[in-house]
């Protein structure tokens, strides 16, 4: 059962659940509005990259209106990742978070998060939290995996959606009350990137480093070969890790 906090709109086919959700948010749709689609014909990842969305996957976008300033909004990526981790881990699935916004299992991609916000220059007006998870059927991308492949049999998408949304509601309201601390602890537990050797790909080529911690803004702390510690933001460098 989906928590009554959420108003769920189920669609068969849509260009992109994030686009529909942003449109509704601009028209004043309340917090808790969810767009779910069986398939997306123009599913999107970051910066217009396509997100393959065949039948069998779970694709939804959730509208939130947190009373926070725009510079804190990236914390909702952490909130969402921690929720996905917890909801799927509880089903006994060996999932983990690949920093900052991917869900993986055994080094294979299982899902991802795309958070988009609308704000005036000073205040946040809405957030759209987009989630895509491969549930049933063959993984849509090479090197991907699915919940079906991990569990050994097809799974109920609606149940998984209800679990994830239940987790989102609990975690989101706890976050508004208590701050990012508990979310960050959960994120760290679920994050496979921590403790790994990573390659930071910058304008001057790749540099090896070790991922050691996640900061309150979601930044990754790394130590280079000389033991120097610095923070890395997802958009400054690309990161490769298994």
């Amino acid at each position: 059962m989906i928590d009554p906090f959420f108003h769920v709109h189920c669609l068969q086919e849509v260009d992109s659940t994030n686009e529909r959700a942003k449109e509704l948010a601009r028209q004043g749709a309340p917090e808790g509005t969810v767009i779910v689609a069986a398939t997306q014909w123009a599913g999107r990842g970051r910066r217009g990259r396509s997100w393959s969305s065949p039948h069998g996957g779970l694709y939804f976008s959730l509208i939130l209106r947190p009373p926070i300033s725009p510079d804190l909004a990236p914390q909702l990526v952490l909130v969402t990742a921690a929720c996905l981790y917890r909801a799927l881990h509880r089903r006994g699935l060996p999932v983990s978070i690949k920093w900052p916004n991917d869900l993986v299992a055994g080094g294979k991609k299982l899902g991802g998060i795309l958070v988009e916000a609308g704000s005036a220059s000073q205040s946040l007006s809405f957030l759209v939290v987009g989630v895509g998870v491969n549930i049933n059927g063959p993984p849509p991308i090479e090197g991907g995996t699915s919940i079906e492949a991990l569990a050994g049999s097809p799974q109920q998408k609606e149940e998984i959606l209800a679990d994830i949304l239940g987790e989102m509601k609990r975690t989101y309201f706890a976050y508004l009350q208590e701050g990012i601390g508990p979310v960050l602890a959960e994120y760290r537990r679920g994050c496979t990137t921590l403790g790994r050797e990573v390659i930071l790909v910058g304008p001057k080529g790749g540099a090896p480093a070790k991922a050691v911690d996640i900061g309150e803004r979601g930044e990754l702390f790394v130590e280079d070969l000389d033991g120097r510690r610095r923070s890395v933001f997802a958009d400054e460098v690309s990161l490769r890790c298994g």
């Binding site: 970051r46 910066r47 725009p70 510079d71 909004a73 990236p74 909702l76 990526v77 900052p100 916004n101 998060i113 795309l114 958070v115 988009e116 916000a117 609308g118 704000s119 005036a120 220059s121 000073q122 007006s125 803004r217 979601g218 930044e219 933001f233 997802a234 958009d235």
Partner: peptide, 12 residues
């Protein structure tokens, strides 16, 4: 964009 979150800034 920060932390792969895209924030569309609207005119005041």
């Amino acid at each position: 964009e920060a932390m792969k979150m895209m924030n569309e800034i609207e005119a005041d």
